[in-house]
C-alpha cells in the first residue's frame, strides 16, 4: 500500500499518509500540529483545508462546514480526507468554527491560543 507525502503550506510541515488513512489522523500519528484538531468526525470544521495540488477522496462531512460548491473548489475537512496522490494543502478553518472564539475565550485570553 502506498504512502503519500502531505505538505501543509503555512507551516511547511510534511508527513506521510497511507492510502486509506485520513490526513488528520496521519498528522496526529506523526505528533505534528500543522492542522488544528477538532472532533475528528467531519462535524466541527476546525480542520478544514484547501487542497492546492493532488488527488484525493472524501468521506461524508458536514455541509455546514464544506458546502457542495466549496468541495468542488478543493475544500475538505482533513479528518475526512484520504489522499490518492501526494498532496499540498493549506489550512482554511471554516468561518463558522472560527467564530468559536467567543465571549468566554475573550474573558480569559491567556488561557486560549488563537487557531491559525
Amino acid at each position: 500500500m502506498s504512502d503519500y507525502v502531505i505538505t501543509e503550506q503555512h507551516s511547511q510541515q510534511s508527513f506521510t499518509c497511507k492510502q486509506d488513512e485520513f490526513v488528520l489522523k496521519a498528522m496526529e500519528n506523526h505528533g505534528l500540529h500543522a492542522i488544528a484538531v477538532g472532533c475528528r468526525g467531519g462535524g466541527c470544521g476546525v480542520c478544514r483545508v484547501k487542497v492546492i495540488a493532488g488527488s484525493y477522496e472524501c468521506a461524508r462531512m458536514s455541509k455546514a462546514q464544506v458546502s457542495t460548491e466549496q468541495q468542488q473548489q478543493g475544500y475538505a475537512l482533513a479528518c475526512r480526507l484520504k489522499p490518492t496522490s501526494d498532496l499540498i494543502i493549506e489550512c482554511s478553518p471554516s468561518p463558522l468554527a472560527i467564530t468559536g472564539l467567543t465571549g468566554v475565550a475573550k474573558a480569559k485570553p491567556k488561557h486560549t491560543e488563537v487557531i491559525k
Binding site: C39, C44, A105, T112
Partner: peptide, 8 residues
C-alpha cells in the same frame, strides 16, 4: 481551545 471552539 477545543472545549471552547469545537461545536456542531
Amino acid at each position: 481551545e477545543r472545549f471552547l471552539t469545537v461545536l456542531t
